[in-house]
Design a protein around this nucleic acid. Structure first.
Length: 242
DNA sequence: TCATTAAGTATGC
DNA sequence: GCATACTTAATGA
């Protein structure tokens, strides 16, 4: 026990919180304690921006609980959803890519809790903590892969296939098993899906209605459950055509 | 194959 | 009751 003035006051933050998180999984408890003592913990209401595109990248974050939507605005002023970030992952890590400003806006999709550290600690973290850098570059690699495959989809696939891909991606990353299938673990509207696929919300709505009639999905407002993932995979066009 | 327009129902503070 | 979420049909590129 050395310093009782850490910004993350309250006993909520114990070491076990971070041991689950990939970037910190390889660290000793005393190292995790050090990191926690430097962290600031904050809660974000659904819909609130954690940081915004173009602003100075002052801090980097790890999501403890909730879900983050990474959003950009196109030249025409349309919102594009670039990524969804599930809990346990780093975000706002512009420094890892050599940026000094955030390349996108991060919005809490549900009420969320995140830890953050000032960006000037980034080099220290990379240098001092084993596995932090490798895990980070792994996540960055995954996200770049995901975004580039989405660009390919946008260019080559039909709307129905793109919607299927978007839903499949979300149940892979944030699916929760329920009685009748796999449910996307955060609120998602037709509008949101249109922002991910570049279709209109009307087309998304019609497509989802058709899938619901066919028993492939079930949906309540803001929630989608996939009952027949296999059929969705076929619709996504990921498999070779007959 | 889709976007657009337009007009409707359902749901929740 | 008002905003938000969602549905549907018609029309036309």
């Amino acid at each position: 026990m050395k310093n009782n003035r850490h910004p993350a006051r309250h006993g909520l933050l114990d070491e076990s919180l971070l041991t689950q998180m990939p970037p910190f999984a390889m660290l000793r408890t005393d190292q995790i304690r050090e990191i926690l003592d430097l962290a600031t913990s904050r809660r974000y209401e659904a819909g609130v921006a954690v940081f915004e595109e173009g602003f100075d990248a002052e801090r980097f974050y790890v999501l403890l609980d909730g879900h983050i939507r990474v959003v950009r605005i196109s030249e025409q002023g349309e919102r594009i959803i670039a990524l969804h970030i599930p809990s346990g992952q780093l975000f706002g890590i512009a420094a890892a890519l050599g940026h000094t400003t955030y390349p996108a806006t991060a919005i809490a999709a549900v009420e969320s809790v995140a830890l953050s550290w000032p960006m000037h600690l980034w080099p220290d973290f990379v240098a001092r903590y084993d596995g932090f850098a490798t895990q980070t570059y792994k996540t960055v690699g995954h996200r770049i892969e995901e975004m580039s495959s989405r660009m390919l989809e946008l260019a080559t696939q039909q709307v129905e296939q793109r919607i299927a891909c978007a839903i499949l991606r979300m149940i892979n990353q944030s699916g929760r098993k329920v009685d009748n299938g796999i449910k996307i673990d955060f609120p998602i509207t037709r509008q949101n899906l249109s922002e991910m696929t570049g279709a209109t919300l009307h087309t998304v709505s019609r497509t989802l209605s058709a899938w619901e009639r066919d028993g492939i999905i079930e949906s309540q407002r803001k929630h989608i459950t996939v009952c027949d993932p296999h059929k969705l995979v076929i619709l996504s066009g990921t498999l070779a055509p007959t």
